[in-house]
Design a protein around this nucleic acid. Sequence first.
RNA 1: GCCGGUGUGGUGGAAUUGGCAGACACAAGGGACUUAAAAUCCCUCGGAGUAAAAUCCGUACCGGUUCGAGUCCGGUUACCGGCACCA
Length: 803
Amino acid sequence: MKYVHKDIEKKWQERWEEKGVFHAEENSDKEKFYALIEFPYPSGQGLHVGHPRPYTALDTVARKRRLQGYNVLYPIGWDAFGLPTENYAIKNHIHPAEVTKNNIARFKQQIQSLGISFDWSREINTTDPKYFKWTQWIFLQLFKHGLAYKKEMAVNWCTSCKCVLANEEVVNGVCERCGSEVVRRVKSQWMLKITEYADRLSDDLDTVDYPLRVKLQQRNWIGRSTGAEVDFAATTGDILTVYTTRPDTLFGATYMVVSPEHPYIDKWADVIENIDEVRAYQDQAARKSDFERTEMAKDKTGVLIKGVRAVNPVNGKEIPIFISDYVLVSYGTGAIMAVPAHDTRDWEFAKKFDLPIIEVVKGGNVQEEAFTDCATGIMVNSGILDGLSVEDAKVKIKQWLVENGKGKEKVNFKLRDWVFSRQRYWGEPIPIINCPCCGYVPMDESELPLELPMVESYEPTDTGESPLANITEWVNVKCPKCGGDAKRETDTMPQWAGSSWYYLRYMDPHNDNALASKEALDYWSPVDWYNGGMEHTTLHLLYSRFWHKFLYDIGAVPTPEPYAKRTSHGMVLGEGGVKMSKSRGNVVNPDDVVNEYGADTLRLYEMFIGDFEKAAPWDPKGIKGCRRLVERFYNLAENVIDSDEIRSEVESDIHKAIKKVDEDIETLKFNTAIACLMSLINIFGQKGITKGELRIFAILLDPFAPHVAEEVWEIAKLGEGMVAEQKWPEYDEAKCKDETVEIAVQVNGKIKARLNISADADNTEAIAAAKSDAKVAAAIDGMNIVKEIYVKGKLVNIVVKPR
RNA sequence: GCCGGUGUGGUGGAAUUGGCAGACACAAGGGACUUAAAAUCCCUCGGAGUAAAAUCCGUACCGGUUCGAGUCCGGUUACCGGCACCA
């Protein structure tokens, strides 16, 4: 009989939905399991074959957990605010809400055709006012706790999106999203104090089960370093404080550098003899974009500040001060002490400006190049530190600084606060009112959600103002505090806002009184297994950990971390290993695959294509092997032997397969789990299959290919109910073993023979058996036996030497 | 430059973590069935070598440890990802 995937898959999808078999139970006393995938952005392009990979992967886990008796929550929703929708809407004169609605409908239909066991009753949408009411509520809590503030600052401005970008959204000097040039603009922006959580975001990575590469990347991004702040007295009487991770090299500091934006330049304007030259340098630096500044990295520039000098606190020596753009305002104190002997940048600068280079750690040739790799060196030319190791010198100098009131230990981070406002229409309005008397006043929580005004025109402006600014009837309000005339905040939140807490909403998606009930939060928290892309490591994943920690601090959630376990899928590439993209024309639409081969085949191939964590190229021919598996399995149902017996000749194969599939699903080795099922079906193809055996096979296959598993279960009358309602089989370790095993026999590491011996043969028996083989006997004849090794069930190696 | 990862047949990829390299697939070639094709089933499939065997070589490259290395150690090289004047 031919396997007609279209009818069969539709039939089972409808039955699952009717019976609600994938709905998470409320008030269950079962153990819970919360599986989460990154909810999609419903773009106009629809799905490509990259989307189903993580969905299917966690679907196999979710389905297996249900079979194992867990109460499983595996939800989905839509991360639907964002620029592409807005841009499309502007171009085609359709309201973004309408565009979003259409895109979601398309995405939903596509995803549902894959037979993923999502609990659709908990579907959420970040653009739904009932949802973003709580996004706004969280913002208000952040504001009330002093973690949201407004600041006049230089920001990244995308010239095409006409919108501010977070640091994380600027890649190689261009906009992450559209690739257009990013320039500096000074603007007043809402900021979130993620830096307040830098320590915990870094430290608490020890408490979660994330891939090492994710932890490293986050730690790297947070960039904690421990050093010291050191106070240098300037000849003006001011204290010029620097940050350094190498206070041990203080005796080697031969000059100082302040960043072009350092406030002391203005302060010292009257004292600086060459102020015009310094101003000119400042102007020049200000005109450079960040990108240009890094491009020029090789060539150091700067100007000596004449008329002011500084005093090195350890030895009282006067040293010159420079202004240079290789020192950044935004890190440390915006000023450094330069130790050219042991820092590459300082060395280059010193060479260019002909400044003294004093060696303070022995071992390099500091006149030739900076000696930076000196952690194990010994201090020289360093007064009280002479003869100490670098490690000891760090401790001693920090002590000295504290005792003499010249500095202190200090921890610094690369992480910056999160630029949180966007000058666009299609985002959550920020629920703040700007009152000329009272300043920034939060809206009353009872008035949330603050909805977007439905308007005709929402095009971005070149002035840098949000399109909402023109809608006077919406903007003009009374101040909630003093009742006077005031204006609403017109910037909206970034795309990352809604996704920073969505996993909480799934726990209780229809709650109007809280983001989720306490009971739901207590039961479902934390997410047990979260899978997502590496590209979100320093964006969404970090942002949501930050919000979660804040919510934990105010008692709104019960756990300090949102996700207990994180895994990452590799991308699906086009043929030949190149990225799939519209411009290359190599995007594969899953609809076409579902039409031609069916959802089960697509699901199997998505999982079989390669190592789940690595990128894998799509091969349209490779799919056939998976379709064959589906068909061969389906054909087994017709020829099944009417017996509940597990025949002895296949018993160990079955137990081994249960074990393999079980373990492989847990360790993301879906490809080898499927390979194992293919091998098993090859065996059944030869030896036939009984009902009892088919029953187990159907359950093992169900997480990967659920439609055909159900169909076979039904037509072969394998049992009551659906496969989705069965119990996951258990294997017997003892039955995974064969009675005899084939072992290899080596002489001096070279294979001479293969033979079958009893699986529980001991050393003596195995070696005796090996020696009795004619070829082995010949190879060791007349030799001295040096060593005999038996690795149980694997091989015998006999080491010999000539007599 | 710094941090991390990867390199295995024609292709995607396996290898229980130091124990028979190439599982499972795809592609290719041969055969069976068929009027024919598709589908299906069977066989071959790293290289050299041979009538067939034997045998030798082979996991990017060079070296080391070990009875034994794709796996561990040292070095080199290529590619991929992240960060990048962060003091």
